[in-house]
């Protein structure tokens, strides 16, 4: 991607940003995240259909954020994640510049996150045909059949939390599942512990999940956990309206205002 390499070099040379987050060729046929801090390393940047990791997971990572202002090569799902993160006060125009990659693989420049939001809003979040079919199949099952499906699917889960680590929206410095005094979610990987963990995760992501499949792609056991968040996307739409990440912070399922008149949350 010549345009991206050129732009990354300009941004680093002019010190407009300290680090450019993009993709490089990995080992085997894999691609992986690249953090370009020196202009000469920008030549390693690539972009092709294999580049599906949601790089927005890195913009809240302490070690990356500490480098200073970031630029990020952002596909549509990454841009959506960034808008959602901005609405949750995790990134802003002072610490992040978006180098957009359109669905047609063209580089698109944005002056600020408002422009990113406008771009993102041109596209509806659509569940792909294969997963839609799976959701329909699940919806047609009896509750006992569906329960069995999930018990079987989640049985191999060993709680490595790759799903959580790969998700841009799972940026809590301490996750509910890591508390043991008091304990909210059973820590062991057991039938109940696995079910509770994945249901809790899907609930926490409802109205925030932008349907990028990062959780599923990261799972070393390929458990279709993204079906849970997809189902919530469908249900939330039906009951609460269409979801688009928004800088206004008018989240589908919750609101938060620093000047909230209620004080129990402060």
């Amino acid at each position: 991607m010549v345009d991206l390499i050129k732009r990354a070099k300009e941004l680093l040379e002019s010190s407009a940003v300290k680090v450019v987050i993009g993709y490089e060729q990995g080992t085997g046929n894999k691609t992986r995240a690249l953090f370009v801090e020196k202009t000469e390393d920008a030549d390693k940047l690539i972009f092709d259909s294999r580049c599906i990791q949601n790089l927005a997971a890195y913009v809240t990572k302490k070690e990356v954020k500490e480098k200073g202002k970031m630029a990020i090569a952002a596909t549509l799902p990454v841009m959506r994640s960034i808008i959602q993160l901005a609405s949750e006060f995790q990134v802003n125009d002072n610490n992040l510049l978006v180098l957009g990659i359109t669905p047609e693989s063209n580089l698109i420049e944005f002056a600020n996150l408002v422009e990113v939001e406008t771009f993102v809003h041109q596209y509806q979040i659509e569940i792909d045909a294969r997963n839609k079919e799976m959701l329909d199949k699940l919806a047609k099952m009896t509750s006992a059949e569906r329960w069995k499906f999930w018990v079987d699917e989640l049985a191999p889960c060993f709680k490595c939390y790759a799903c959580r680590a790969a998700c841009p929206m799972c940026y809590c410095s301490r996750c509910t599942v890591d508390f043991n005094q008091p304990q909210w979610i059973p820590v062991p990987s057991t039938e109940l512990g696995n079910l509770e963990w994945h249901i809790m995760r899907a609930m926490h992501l409802t109205g925030r999940c932008i349907d990028c499949d990062a959780c599923y792609n990261a799972c070393p056991l390929s458990i279709p956990i993204n079906l849970l968040t997809k189902r919530m996307l469908v249900d939330a739409k039906e009951h609460f309206g269409n979801y688009q990440p928004s800088l206004k912070g008018d989240n589908l399922m919750s609101t938060y205002k620093p000047d909230d008149k209620e004080n129990f949350i402060q």
Binding site: R32, L34, Y58, C160, Y161, A162, A165
Partner: peptide, 29 residues
Amino acid sequence: WIEQSLRCLGCGACAYVCPTCACFDIQDE
């Protein structure tokens, strides 16, 4: 170490598939 680990997301996939990783935690359920 810093360069190698910058892209590491801090999950436990490597340890959990490893035949020799033996670290454990003890929990009261």
